[in-house]
Design a protein around this nucleic acid. Structure first.
Lengths: 282, 282
DNA sequence: CGTCGTCCATACCGCAACGGTATCGAGTCC
DNA sequence: GGACTCGATACCGTTGCGGTATGGACGACG
């Protein structure tokens, strides 16, 4: 009935993305005719047309659009399944933590201390990444991550809030707004904001890949940036910070793949919760 | 590399559930030797042992446990992808709404009126179900649903709150607590509570499959039940209601499969939001 | 202690289906 | 109308899936 093989889905995704059987075949490393047949067979078995073929350019039908979207997540689910199972069976076990350098608001030492005091704690490996942290969790490349809500897309992940951080704006010292005590979002309307690669909503502005690049651009007055107030602990020459009265706060969350709460992940989350609780009391 | 076919995952799930190659083969409708080979091949390609074979009973390795859990969701994702794509391409389009009979807190007429006034509204089909509403959404058998938080498991779904409903306890009229004006949860500690099939946390107590069964048992004094206060609109002979001061309120949410917010689903959610807003103002 | 029964693995075979090459046919551009 | 592009069709070799028969390990039982 609906016994669709992953190969067929991979083929369809390639065609749907390229909208060109020849190029898709090259990308898949097979010849064009078998690909055409596979897609036709898939369409036949599903009983719907997936794409409208014209000799100059094909395009997806509505069913095709839906299948493209859904097939991507299904294929991700499969490779995540394989990757997680592999990792679970590997002799050298470790817990991979996805995080942004400095994105721990000073909690990390506490978290690690709490985790490593657990009876059967695994060695923690760090997967530093600016973008893609959520994707790493979804695809099984990481077990647990420190993310920010609502800056990161937590879809497909389970999470637990650790701490709420007010957001401040990073300005060049000679910036006009540096004269104010605090600002509001409306004041920043005309400013250029940098884009993090993982941002949910892309806008104009340069894409920055690490905090160094960001601070450089801020100091030069090329951009202003909303950052967590823990940035105040790491001063940078030529950059000053001002409170943003109406910016939604950033919530630091510990996140893990939905439904993969292994014993080890659970222990880490518990440790993070403990660390955050003690921290906020301090 | 990780090109695992769905057939292999289905085979593995069958074996992992039966823990017996012969029975799994029967269930899959194939002979035992090909199944053994397929599992061995899968293990070889993944580079991990998935199950420990002994002539008297097999059991899963840790990697096998992980793969079983993850493969189930991956297979669900695939059949959901196929089902949704089929539905998107079907000539006769409709929007399937999963709900519990009477589980709309009186909002349904408003919601439907608001939705059907949309320009390209689809005919709404009802999929009444007590349990399994969340599962219907996840598997693509329904497009949108009216669920309750935290009574339903919203994992894998996106949702939007419509209204918050205080919870009341349904009691037989001659029940000792019927003498009180209101009660608290501690008063109910010793009472038998019925179980809905879809409940997140199962406990003891009879499983009830519809409101009729439930009210019957309540009237007989066999159980007491926490229900939404909208139950007051549907009186039942021999049953009375009392406020529960400290019961967490139930939130009626409109939910849909994460990442499948089609134009039609979006329109329905908008209609539900509108209806709920007007309702709460009234 | 040998026999039997259970259960998974191996050996071998036939066939479906996958992928490759060559070619056709429809639509497009000049 | 000719040349070109691009997907579909025809045909063929090979892979690999599934079936039957059998082997071999292990535990039960007399």
């Amino acid at each position: 009935m609906d016994d669709v093989e992953t190969r067929e889905l991979r083929y369809f995704v390639a065609v749907a993305e390229e909208l060109h059987f020849g190029r898709a075949a090259v990308r898949l490393g097979i010849a064009q005719p078998p690909l055409s047949r596979a897609i036709r067979r898939l369409e036949h078995r599903m009983g719907v047309a997936l794409l409208e073929r014209t000799s100059r350019g094909n395009h997806l039908t509505e069913a095709g659009e839906v299948l493209l979207r859904e097939a991507r997540v299904a294929l991700d689910a499969i490779s995540a399944a394989v990757r997680r199972s592999r990792r679970a069976g590997a002799a050298q076990r470790s817990l991979v933590l996805a995080m942004k350098p400095g994105g721990d608001e000073g909690l990390l030492p506490r978290i690690l201390a709490a985790y490593e005091s657990e009876p059967d704690a695994l060695p923690v490996e760090f997967a530093f990444s600016l973008g893609e942290r959520a994707a790493m969790l979804r695809s099984g490349r990481a077990d647990v991550g420190l993310l920010h809500h609502p800056q990161n897309d937590l879809q497909g992940l389970a999470s637990e809030a650790l701490s709420v951080e007010r957001r401040v704006v990073a300005l060049a010292e000679e910036h006009r707004l540096a004269a104010c005590d605090s600002v509001c979002l409306a004041d920043l309307a005309g400013e250029t904001m940098p884009q993090w690669p993982e941002a949910v909503d892309r806008g104009p502005g340069p894409v920055v890949r690490d905090a160094g690049e960001l601070m450089q651009l801020v100091a030069l007055g090329r951009v202003v940036a909303l950052v967590g107030e823990s940035a105040l602990d790491r001063p940078y020459r030529g950059v000053t910070y001002r409170a943003v009265r109406d910016a939604p706060p950033a919530t630091l969350v510990v996140a893990w793949p939905e439904g993969s709460r292994s014993r080890h992940v659970a222990a880490f989350v518990r440790a993070a919760r403990t660390a955050a609780t003690h921290h906020s009391r301090a």
